[in-house]
Design a protein around this nucleic acid. Structure first.
Lengths: 301, 301
DNA sequence: GTGTCTTTTTGTCCAGGACAAAAAAAGGAG
DNA sequence: CTCCTTTTTTTGTCCTGGACAAAAAGACAC
């Protein structure tokens, strides 16, 4: 018995929302407006989507992340969608993500990946490992995932291994750290924690005192935690997909609620560039700038 | 300026869904049926919930997790809700979560927490640390959170620190491991990864070869990854909140799609007891049983 | 180019009805 | 009295089709 027989290839609207991330309301309005997807109905009149429809929806989401608009994509026949995906794939050649590394990722080879990290660690040090390998690799992997060159398990596997490696490094740093005391987290809508972890390692490497709350922290709790932990700096990370508008709003609200003596450091691909100029908020454009930020802070205090 | 001034105390229905986890449809139907919450409306007729209403909703959710039913709770005036919460709080006295440990958690004291872990590690070893401290502590913290004795940041902080400590241990295990080769993950609806990590450490302590994909893995991808990684065992973890029915369904589907030679190990507070008896599925009732499971497997092969 | 205004597109919200799934209550057998 | 099955009640999710706010694209002036 194969998976299509046991997990029936007909999904209800809630399952499709889970798998694609498209809200139920959006799925219904697309059907009404563009005539796709047109799921069959069960006895009770409820929508049942086929595997093919869900797969096509996934392609559409991927292309939308690249800037295409739903109106175009939903009118397109399946083969033209494939053509678009293929076209995109051929234009791009990842630099780091090739050869041995790509193979290790696809084979879920724990040992090979760890060997690579360990080698680079010895050659370039922990900060070099992050700025020269892991940070650019994250970008490559994100793109490869968009193009469909890497699957969900490959990406999860990579995330797990990087996490274990970096936290291993973190666990062996001497404690307690020196000032500044940094509180690390993300806004409630941001669930990616890998960037945060990289920042924590970079700061710990500078001897700073870090307290990470992980991702998805409500604003009020960030403010309270900053007091509790007696933080000098609150550091927030934004992944590429984060809507700039929302980021800006959240940052302003947070800035207004934090004591003026607490600095706010903001970084990641989704950090809103427009935040520059707001007083009391520092935009970290590149993770490699962090050590400089720390020594600056120390000079100021 | 305080947080209520900058993040206005009126939330739209999407924000309330984010904060409480209650679906928009549920919020609307509660309003229709029980007359609570009755948000005010903006110019466009859209719902705006006050802080008080959202706080009361949070209390209600907490009591529902303890088995109370919405029909009762929504009819209750606010002070009787508070009374219920208070009554529950007084009946329970956590054992582990007291004194120094509770203080460290509430103060977000990284160093104190790590010292505690380190001490227990030296006294009882890694497996003892997990089975005798971390596993029961997780339960206590979960309950304290339900009762409102711990806040969101406290729980996140704890999770971060345990993760760093355990992954630090993981990173220092010799590689490659011996058979069995174990693939670790959770079903797509389960987002808690801490249990998984504890299992990975326990298995690595037995010298097993582990490959973790982290949480939230679609069924089809689990099957494919099991092939890719050439796994002997697929291990799944379920947190207490996981609906038993869904777990059972998912497990049966997965069992049917995996090769019969691959074993399926299931554990965690939310693992469905009824799965016992299904051929090819092992229920791990206590994380301390894992080493036995590994040696059993090795005898069989 | 770069900013501002207008139009189009797109996603989210609404009402109120329906019914499936889960939980509680009732009934019945050992 | 306990355990299992059936009925009733409760509760959450889905439906339709209309409306409109927010975002993006296009038009136009500078």
């Amino acid at each position: 018995m194969n998976i299509t027989a046991s997990s029936p290839s007909l999904l209800n609207i809630a399952a499709v929302e889970r798998e694609t991330g498209l809200l139920k309301d959006t799925l219904r309005v697309w059907e009404r407006r563009y005539g796709f997807p047109t799921p069959i109905r069960d006895d009770a009149g409820e929508r049942l989507y086929t595997r093919e429809q869900v797969d096509r929806l996934r392609l559409i989401c991927r292309l939308m992340d690249q800037g295409w608009r739903p109106g175009k994509l939903l009118a397109l026949p399946p083969d033209e969608l494939d053509a678009l995906i293929a076209a995109d794939r051929s234009t791009h050649t990842p630099t780091l993500l090739s050869g041995e590394l790509a193979a290790a990722l696809r084979a879920h080879d724990v040992d090979a990946l760890r060997r690579t990290f360990q080698t680079v660690l010895l050659e370039k040090g922990l900060k070099g490992l992050i700025t020269e390998l892991i940070a650019p690799l994250n970008v490559d992997i994100g793109e490869a995932w968009l193009r469909g060159d890497l699957g969900v398990p490959d990406e999860h596997f990579y995330t797990e291994q990087v996490q274990t490696f970096l936290r291993g490094a973190l666990a062996s740093y001497p404690r307690p750290g020196k000032p500044p005391r940094v509180l690390l987290t993300t806004l409630p809508e941001e669930e990616h924690g890998l960037g945060l972890l990289m920042v924590e390692v970079m700061l710990s490497a500078e001897g700073a005192h870090c307290c990470s709350l992980g991702p998805r922290m409500p604003l009020t709790d960030i403010v309270r935690a900053a007091q509790t932990a007696d933080a000098d700096v609150v550091a927030l990370s934004f992944s590429a997909a984060f809507p700039a508008r929302q980021a800006l709003e959240g940052l302003r609200a947070l800035r207004a609620s934090l004591p003026p003596t607490v600095e706010l450091w903001v970084g990641g691909a989704g950090a809103p560039a427009r935040i520059r100029g707001e007083p009391g908020v520092s935009l970290i454009r590149d993770i490699a700038e962090l050590p400089l930020g720390v020594s600056d802070w120390r000079t100021r205090h």
